[in-house]
């Protein structure tokens, strides 16, 4: 039966402007729901405590109810599929009114606070880079799939440790990075293993662990993007930076 069917979709647009006919099926007009929400002062993403301004410093402590039974019954199109009618014998097909899409999306427009935050991040990074360059801190490079510190890496870290010990007020951050090969998720774990290997070696050299923070960026903040072994090597690193306070 299915094999023998040809589907013809005739496009016959009905202009909706000013139409007062109410929605007859499937829970109605998603757009109006969105409008109502905006009217009732629903939070715009940029105005929210947890996304605006300082970014994440005011997360709500109450969770939303995520269990499926909490799904509102009046959600647009929750009526599901109704199928179409048999229209043989000159009968008109059944009619359905459609509003917005099935999934409503709040608009996110980079707001002033976002722009400020992006600028803060940029400034902080530049400050860290300058301070690390001035300190002459060296990075540590790793082999493919590996988080073992090489002899060359040990030499770099011996120098780094001297500077850190000589600058008692400085806080240092070790970023773990990976090349583009492998999965995003596992590279975050691998990046953390690399960063922690660097931290542990610095601690062995006498640096206080409380002065060393680690963060993994996996393959998400690469130093270069070429598909060459030399670029891969650049990206497999423990990046040692003076942390801005």
């Amino acid at each position: 039966m299915t094999m023998g069917l040809t589907v013809a979709v005739g496009v016959l647009l009905v202009v909706q402007g000013g139409c007062s006919k109410k929605s007859i099926q499937s829970g109605g007009d998603a757009q109006s729901t969105e409008r109502d929400m905006a009217k009732s002062g629903g939070p715009a993403p940029s105005a929210m405590g947890s996304t605006g301004g300082g970014g994440f410093d005011a997360p709500s402590t109450t969770f939303p109810d995520l269990s499926l039974s909490s799904k509102p019954q009046d959600e647009p199109e929750s009526g599901g599929l109704r199928g179409f009618d048999s229209v043989s014998g000159g009968k008109a097909p059944s009619e359905e009114r459609l509003g917005g899409g099935g999934t409503m999306l709040a608009k996110v427009e980079p707001s002033e606070s976002t722009a400020r935050q992006i600028e803060d991040i940029r400034r902080e990074q530049a400050k860290e880079q300058a301070a690390s360059a001035e300190a002459g801190l060296r990075d540590v490079y790793f082999g493919y799939d590996s988080w073992t510190i090489t002899e060359e890496g040990r030499q770099s870290l011996t120098q780094d440790a001297q500077w850190i010990k000589a600058n008692a007020g400085a806080l240092v951050k070790i970023e773990g990075h990976c090349d583009e090969r492998g999965t995003l998720a596992y590279n975050l774990v691998l990046g953390e293993k690399r960063a922690k290997a660097v931290r542990n070696y610095l601690v062995e050299l006498g640096v206080g662990a409380n002065r060393l923070a680690v963060v993994s960026y996996g393959k998400e903040r690469p130093f270069c993007n070429e598909r060459t072994e030399s670029c891969y090597q650049q990206n497999r690193r423990g990046h040692v930076v003076v942390r801005s306070k």
Binding site: V9, S88, E96, R97, L98, G100
Partner: peptide
């Protein structure tokens, strides 16, 4: 927008559905 299903064997319309909405929801 009207959608119809034809049986390609007999050329008969076996089903259909009409959708009403603005041009922004054609997809």
């Amino acid at each position: 927008m009207d959608g119809f299903v034809y049986d390609s064997g007999s050329d008969e319309v076996v089903g259909g559905k009409r959708y009403v909405g603005s041009t922004s929801v054609v997809r």
